[in-house]
Design a protein around this nucleic acid. Structure first.
Lengths: 334, 334
DNA sequence: TGAGCAAGTGGATACGTTTTCAAGACTGTC
DNA sequence: GACAGTCTTGAAAACGTATCCACTTGCTCA
């Protein structure tokens, strides 16, 4: 169909064409010192032959693959898609390719993907960690340059996360201000940080901190729906729900409709992560906006500018009030 | 912080430990023939040393990087996120890493990214092409194994796309059935296929095919909003709009609200691509569902199973009726 | 003028793997 | 018992690059 695959031209041919040694070509092309005359000759030859250095040879020699690995739980989730966009945006300005893997919040899959990256000698990795911190020991020992995003599971690894504590506190305070006392948190696995903050927030406001008020879902939409429906069904006493992500929020709205629970009349809903459709939803959703794109961008900066010190960046969240929260009903429904 | 980066162990050391030559180790590990005894010795040694073959060495030798490149216009767009998910899902089952790039529908950026992939000697690429087919000639000549997804800009390149023609026809017929005659298409660049189908559909139903009834936006949300608002504002005679993607649909709903145009009373809206929030929207959006994930998955299959013949896969779309379309108003608004 | 020094240069090597090739060991047949 | 054939094996040669090191050159300073 298309002609014979044209052979790649190598540094050797450039050297020959320019009448110099390969070492000189390599130096010129990677910014080493060379006389003006030589530099010009080499550059001219390289341009004439349309020489493109092979990343393969360079990587093998350097004993490391350029580029950065990115591990997210679910690329379909708007939050992680935006985070990914941030990483890609930063990486592009450095000309670094990004290899993306989806963990599904499954530590086993995550380990598998890390293994693959190590096999590729990829030495820079941005991850939304799904398991606990321990499983990262081997990866770190292997010399991987890791930055955590969205979640912080080890203190000895740089990380950039949203200010979960403040975000949760803001949400709880807002709800409490509307008179709610039984507030539930609908989260997904791996949000221990936020759950702890939730407990602390409840306690600081003197609200009941029932263990059952925290419900966990897996990362799938089905699981999110089941968790939301279960919560709404079995706990008629809760009058406000905090959804720990846009997938959870979506599930909560869906489940509420199905169960004929009105928002915000019967239960108030506040969702983590502002997404474009939050405004389109009926009712428009009050949210805690998270700088997903920034998180990704900053994480990429951290992992690329290796020398940086600050191991922990926390980015602010913001309460956006719309119409999914109302005053507590006089008596719990049913 | 972390101890000295542990040196990677090589095939040579495994060979030494097993008391065989490196060639034998290589053969055993890549499924070549060897005596049972030797195989066992090698496997044992490899396991004992926890040997992980270096993709770098292999790639250099093989003159090609494993893995596949993926170029999408906007990873933030749910459609492309799902498409990406499909690619990743298929690639994972083959153990192949995927390098993702965002083109922003900009041919220049696209060319840049392709250059990067070639530099990496990546020889398999799935792309949602943003420009016309001509700019792919160099990439193809370089031996790149390309599969197009979502759009088909060359006939000599395998592609997997949604059935745009049928989808558009279904949408137009549905709207015409409701009495609409002035139907507009709100699309983004690169949808020439669909625009053509739109024109054909209008013609086949004897509807006016005004050139101005097709409005184009860039891939950004702002541009989409501007286009939608412009359409709604300057063409009070159109009573139905087909949005060529979820970002466009979102923009249309937003613009309609801002301009106090009621959906579906004043204008009917039908959106390409079913997204989770379409049901949550007020009103719930009637959509042409597209198998985004499947498109990605099939494209990955095509690019991985290189020998496959069928160069053009077309996947069906499906009309999902919700509540954003109504009968044509007796008189155009205003 | 000679020694010393800096800058420029190219040959050679190593990075870790796969694959070719030739040689060795072994089996079966006439 | 010789020979042809098959199976197994390891040494060696790439793949394309970056870097070490030794060499040359041109210059400065004593």
């Amino acid at each position: 169909m298309n002609g014979p695959t044209q052979r790649r031209i190598t540094i050797k041919e450039v050297a020959e064409a320019a009448g110099v040694g390969v070492a000189t070509v390599s130096r010129v092309l990677s910014g080493g010192s060379a006389s003006a005359e030589t530099r010009e000759k080499v550059l001219a030859a390289a341009a004439r032959l349309d020489y493109r250095p092979s990343a393969l040879g360079r990587n093998l020699r350097r004993q490391r693959t350029g580029g950065i690995g990115l591990l997210v739980p679910d690329i379909t989730d708007s939050f992680y898609a935006r985070l990914t966009d941030g990483v890609l945006s930063c990486a592009r300005s450095y000309g670094e390719p990004v290899t993306v893997g989806v963990t599904g919040d499954d530590p086993e899959r995550e380990a598998e993907l890390i293994g693959g990256l190590i096999e590729q000698s990829m030495d820079r990795l941005i991850a939304v960690p799904s398991g606990d911190g321990d499983m990262w020991a081997p990866a770190l020992r292997a010399g991987l340059n890791v930055v955590f995003a969205d979640r912080r599971v080890r203190t000895d690894v740089p990380s950039v996360v949203p200010d979960d504590r403040a975000g949760v506190l803001t949400a709880v305070e807002y709800l409490a201000g509307l008179g709610h006392r039984k507030i539930a948190y609908l989260g997904r696995h791996g949000q221990s940080q936020r759950v702890a903050a939730f407990g602390a927030a409840l306690a600081s406001l003197g609200l009941p901190a029932d263990r059952d008020l925290v419900v966990h879902a897996r990362s799938s939409r089905d699981s999110a729906y089941a968790a939301a429906a279960g919560l709404l069904q079995h706990r008629p006493d809760v009058t406000a729900v905090i959804a720990g992500g846009n997938v959870l929020g979506e599930a909560a709205v869906l489940a509420a409709r199905e169960l004929d629970v009105r928002i915000p009349r019967d239960v108030s809903l506040i969702m983590f992560d502002d997404v474009p459709w939050a405004e389109l939803c009926s009712p428009p959703l009050t949210v805690i906006a998270q700088p997903a794109q920034d998180i990704g961008y900053r994480a990429a900066e951290l992992v690329l500018r290796h020398g940086r010190r600050p191991p922990a960046v926390t980015l602010p969240t913001k309460l956006v009030v719309r119409a999914s929260c109302g005053p507590r009903v006089a008596f719990p429904r049913r």
